[in-house]
Every structure is written in C-alpha cells, then in structure tokens.
Amino acid sequence: MKRIDLPLDKVVEEIGKFYRYDEHHFIVINAVDLGDAIEVQWFFSNYVAPGEVTMFAAKADASQLIPSITRVVPSAWVAEAELVDLMGINIENAKKGFVLEEDFEGAPLRKK
C-alpha cells in the first residue's frame, strides 16, 4: 500500500490531480481515532496496475470541517455519509442519518 500524507486543505486538490475514473477505482474513505486527532484516509486501487492500493491520509481535529471529494469522485457520497454517522466528523455537504438514525446521538467508532 502506498501512503500519501497531506495537509487537510490540500486533499481535494491532490486527489483531483491523481484520480482518473478510467484508471483508478475509488474504494472507500476510512477514519481512525488517534485520540488527539482524527486521521481520515481515502483509498484507491488502480485498474492499470492491479494490486496497487494508494491511501491519501490527512489529520483533522474532531470538530473541523472535512472537505468533500465528491466534486472529483462523485460516488464518494456514500462513504462520506457513513463516516459522518459512525465517526461523528463533519464532512462538507454530507448529512447525518444514512447508516444510523438521524436523531442518533454519539459516534460509535470514536474512542471517547
């Protein structure tokens, strides 16, 4: 797995430069609670180089607004909606209530 660490404000720009839908397959977005920050991870595989997985990673405060990549990867809306519910982070234009009930309080995958 190839890991690319980025500042949060460069994520959309760098994924936009990297991603070609006829070359890369968007897998999913993941997040890891590091305690003092959340690490958000965007995963892609490659149709041209089978087996290759690229992960873009950026750290954010739990209350920070995470930029949406849907303007460059339209199908990413499901992964963003899932993280909003399960990790309790804010992602641009993503609503609560896709994986959990809209009025569910808390974030199941956060440590505290």
């Binding site: 897998i27 999913v28 993941n30 609670d33 199908s75 499901v78 992964a79």
Partner: peptide, 16 residues
Amino acid sequence: LERLKVKAPTFSNIPA
C-alpha cells in the same frame, strides 16, 4: 486491534 474497517461490495454499488 486499534482499528478495523470493513467495506462491503453492496456499499460500493449504491451510487450505481
């Protein structure tokens, strides 16, 4: 484990 994430195929296919 510190974190385990599972992404199912049905999840990927929702937009399509």
